[in-house]
Design a protein around this nucleic acid. Sequence first.
DNA 1: CCCCAAAAAGACTATTTATATCTTTTTAGG
DNA 2: CCTAAAAAGATATAAATAGTCTTTTTGGGG
Lengths: 141, 141
Amino acid sequence: MMELTRKGEYAIRGIVYLAGKPIDKVCLLSDIAAAVDVPPTFLAKIFQQFSKIGLVKSFRGTGGGFLLGRAAENITLLEVVEAVEGPIIPNRCVVTPSDCERSDFCNVHPVWKRVQGEVRSVLEGVNLKELASKERSDINN
Amino acid sequence: MMELTRKGEYAIRGIVYLAGKPIDKVCLLSDIAAAVDVPPTFLAKIFQQFSKIGLVKSFRGTGGGFLLGRAAENITLLEVVEAVEGPIIPNRCVVTPSDCERSDFCNVHPVWKRVQGEVRSVLEGVNLKELASKERSDINN
DNA sequence: CCCCAAAAAGACTATTTATATCTTTTTAGG
DNA sequence: CCTAAAAAGATATAAATAGTCTTTTTGGGG
């Protein structure tokens, strides 16, 4: 359970690739897609979503392509994931405080809240600069 | 993302209900289903899974029904969730160490490992006795 | 031995979500 | 105005989710 979709995986690959390029290097979608091994048409959809919320900047026409919207160290993994997958919701009951009519008496509700907090916290603690660096920031595995 | 399915939600409701009953009280599936508001046929499938791995004991025929397989305090929420949803896998790449051919150079791999660890840890820290108690073990929300 | 109660097992269905692809439109440069 | 490239929208396929229905097995009681 709790599995990231392909879309999420592809989104991360694509934007991490961008983060590894010089800040002013405009990248073609087709090049990015080829480099990170994702279907170009699919990646296009993903980058459109990124573009709408400013995670990347896009330029159309000749010489067009994509740039990172902000400095890589100011974009967290959480933002990237939530941009394409939506909010981190381990269970419906945590969507809004009042949403779940069982939450008054249900002891598992606070557990899901805690799960949500932990996951968000881990993902928020990682930025694209770290992810794009050649150095392994962590022990493998 | 990372959402528990209905099946998982129903599974928890059902087994927490059992955990709230006297240890030797054999409960009818139909009663459990009605009490926790889940489709009886669906809950039947879920309890069959529980039964196979010993989370609950089942008795057939007249006077049959279900009991908790072990003391409620010895069953963690993690076991219950994994029983019906499978292992906690935030991304395919964490399934097996060698499974992901990107894991050599991919910095996000260890992040997913950390997410997995945190989620498992939270769920493992909660048992059915706590979940079934009338006292709120935690602040609401 | 027969009947009834209840869970187990298996087949089947419908809906939704995931995973794309294809076509057309817009924008920009040369 | 021609070409390059992204944006937008429509469509297609496959898989997972969320169930239902039917038949079988098991066990108790008369």
